[in-house]
Amino acid sequence: MDEQPGLSEQYRRASPWPLFIALGLPIAEIGVLFGLVPLAVGGLLLFVGSVAGIVQESGYVERPWNLLVGLGGVLVVLGGALALSQLTGGSLDGFVSALGSNGLVVRGVSIVIAGAIALGVGGVARFVETEPI
């Protein structure tokens, strides 16, 4: 209340991130469920990027990049596990043919792609951006 400012008075009253988290999640869900690779990749990127952004904005971390790398890593592991669970042999040919025939492999790979991009962006930005935000 106005005459008794408490801790949460320090919070900013506006944040751009919630909207994009709420947009990223459904796009990612639709993309992964229907196997639409661009939507899955884009939605997941929007989601993990916004999560990293909002956590940084809230002051839980000083810079978002490590978190982005971590979230990207989680996606790579999850997507990889999904894709690998469907592959029987370790050959490249088997993988390519599974990409054409097995929807779960496509979905797994799309999650891996999103994770890899998040990993890459986070990893590079971590070193490029030296100035603390």
Binding site: Q10, R13, Y60, V61, E62
Partner: peptide, 8 residues
């Protein structure tokens, strides 16, 4: 500029 961050 008008909304300070807790962490920075």
């Amino acid at each position: 500029s008008y909304t300070p961050l807790a962490g920075g």
